[in-house]
Write a protein that binds this DNA or RNA. Structure first.
Lengths: 79, 79
DNA sequence: CCACATTTGTCCGTATGTATC
DNA sequence: AGATACATACGGACAAATGTG
């Protein structure tokens, strides 16, 4: 098994950082460019992670501004 | 230009079909190739819709087999 | 066991659009 | 006006699982 996909690793790491408080509600995530560099992936891979996190309501993507962590109320119901 | 993104339209239509019973738990969705043709989009766009639906736990993607509708218990809590 | 077709999975590079600053 | 940042989409490539012959 070749580990999970990169986009899942990126998404899971954000989730972990939110749960541990390393990322707090309202915080802005590193820019896509920075995340690309940090993981050595393409833009599309980062966006895939963000689309997933957005569906889970953990983040909010705001065009032209950035990507922000949502209030826990929105995602606490997830098992 | 698009009043809403294609990948969101595809995802929303699946959700609508599940809610109206047109798609039932265990049902297999049309193949990605068919969906591509139906909407006139690329493979990546369909995958984006599926990544979103998977995060919402509405579908399950099984490599080599297909994409299947999950049991409602898994997604009923999501608004 | 092997070969093949089908189907989904993942990732890349690129282009263009849109919002914000 | 220009720079920055995210949004969407396309086409292509290869991997991996599944089923059939």
């Amino acid at each position: 098994m070749p580990e999970s996909a990169e986009y899942l690793r990126i998404a899971d790491e954000v989730v972990a950082d939110v749960r541990t408080g390393k990322l707090k509600p309202g915080d802005r995530l590193p820019s896509v460019a920075e995340t690309r560099a940090a993981y050595g992936v393409s833009y599309g891979t980062v966006q895939l992670a963000y689309v997933r996190l957005e569906a889970l309501r953990i983040i909010r993507r705001q065009q032209g501004k950035g990507v922000f962590v949502n209030d826990p109320k929105l995602w606490m119901r997830e098992p």
